[in-house]
Amino acid sequence: MTAAIIAAAVAVVVVVVLVFSVTVLREYERGVVFRAGRVRPLYGPGIRLLVPLLDRLVRVDQRVVTLTIPPQEVITKDNVPARVNAVVMFRIVEPVKAIVAVENYSVATSQIAQTTLRSLLGRADLDTLLAHREDLNQDLRTIIEKQTKDWGVEVQVVEIKDVEIPESMQRAMAREAEAERERRAKVINAHGELQASEELRQAADTLSRSPASLQLRYLQTLLELGADQNSTVVFPLPVDIITPFLRSAFDRGRPDGAG
C-alpha cells in the first residue's frame, strides 16, 4: 500500500509538472520566454515545453491591431481650433523587441500617435487639413513608424477619421465657397461676352464687305417676325442710310443766318 501511495503521489506530481510545463501557441502567436530572467530564442506556434519555476512565457499576438486615437484638440497653422480623431493599424513584426524594448507597446504606440497628430496638424492650415488628408496620413504614418520601429512595431495604416471645426467657421467657409462660385460665374459670363463680341465683330466685317448679304439678313429678319403673326413689324435700317435725311431735316429747321 505504501508503494501505491508513493506511485500515486509521483503521478500527481508528474501531472502537475506537465500542466505547468506544456503550453500551446496558436498560429498567430509567438512566445517570448524568459529563463531565469534571460531571454530565450523565440517560440513559434505549436506545443511547447517550459521548465517549471524557471521559465516565464509572454504571448505576443502578431495580428493587425486597430487602435483608435481619441479626439485631439489642435490649433492649425492659421489659428483655427479643431477636434481631430484618427485610427492607427499596426502589427508586431519583432516580438522580442516588443516585449524587451518597451513596457507596453500598445500604450506607447497610442501616445506617440496622439503626440504626432497634434504636432503635425499644428503645422498645417485648415485648407490642407480638409483637402489634402491623404498627404497628412502618409506623413503621420512615416513619423509614427520612425518612432515605433525600434520597438518591433510596424505601422501599416494611419487615417484621419473626422475633423470638427466651430460652427462659426463652417458658416464663414460656406460664405467663402458661395462667393467663389459667384466669382467664377461672373468670370465665365465675362468670357462669354468677350467671345460673343468677337464673333459679332467678325460677322459685321463679313456683312460690310457684301451689302447684298446685309439686305438678305434684313429680309430674313422680317420673315422671322412674320412667322409669329405679330401685329407690330420692326424694320431695321442702317444708320448710314437715314443719316442724310436726318441731317437735311435738321438743316431746314435751323434759323436763318445760323453758322
Results as ranks from 00 to 15, higher is better:
M1A: 11
A3R: 09
I5D: 09
I5E: 14
A7T: 12
A7K: 14
A9C: 12
A9I: 12
A9E: 11
A11F: 13
V15N: 12
L18G: 13
F20T: 09
V22A: 13
V24G: 10
E29F: 07
R35H: 13
G37S: 07
G37F: 04
R38F: 05
R38D: 09
V39F: 12
R40T: 13
P41M: 13
I47H: 09
L49G: 09
V51L: 12
L54A: 10
L54M: 10
D55Q: 13
L57M: 15
L57I: 11
R59D: 06
D61M: 08
D61H: 06
T66M: 08
I69F: 10
E73G: 06
V74Y: 01
T76L: 04
T76W: 00
D78Q: 12
V80K: 01
R83F: 14
V87K: 01
V88W: 00
V88N: 00
M89L: 05
M89D: 02
M89I: 04
I92P: 00
I92R: 01
E94C: 14
P95M: 03
P95C: 09
I99E: 01
V102Y: 02
V102R: 04
E103V: 07
N104V: 08
S106D: 08
S106N: 07
V107W: 05
T109L: 02
Q111T: 12
A113S: 04
Q114C: 11
T115C: 05
T116Q: 13
T116V: 09
L120N: 02
L120H: 00
A124L: 08
D125C: 03
L126N: 04
L129M: 03
L130I: 08
L130H: 00
H132E: 11
D139V: 06
L140W: 00
T142V: 07
I143M: 04
I144E: 01
T148K: 00
T148S: 01
K149R: 13
K149Y: 11
D150I: 09
W151P: 00
V153L: 04
V155L: 09
Q156G: 08
E159T: 03
I160W: 00
D162Q: 12
D162R: 11
P166A: 03
S168V: 06
M169N: 05
R171M: 09
A172L: 09
A172G: 10
E176C: 05
E178A: 15
E178P: 03
E180K: 14
R181W: 03
R181C: 05
I188P: 00
L194P: 02
Q195C: 10
Q195R: 15
E198R: 15
E199R: 12
L200E: 05
A203D: 12
D205H: 14
L214Y: 02
Q215V: 09
L222I: 03
L223E: 15
A227G: 11
S231T: 14
T232P: 02
V233R: 03
V233P: 01
V234L: 05
V239M: 14
I241A: 04
I242A: 12
I242F: 11
F245L: 07
S248A: 11
A249E: 14
F250H: 15
G253D: 07
P255K: 15
P255E: 12
P255D: 07
A258Q: 11
G259R: 06
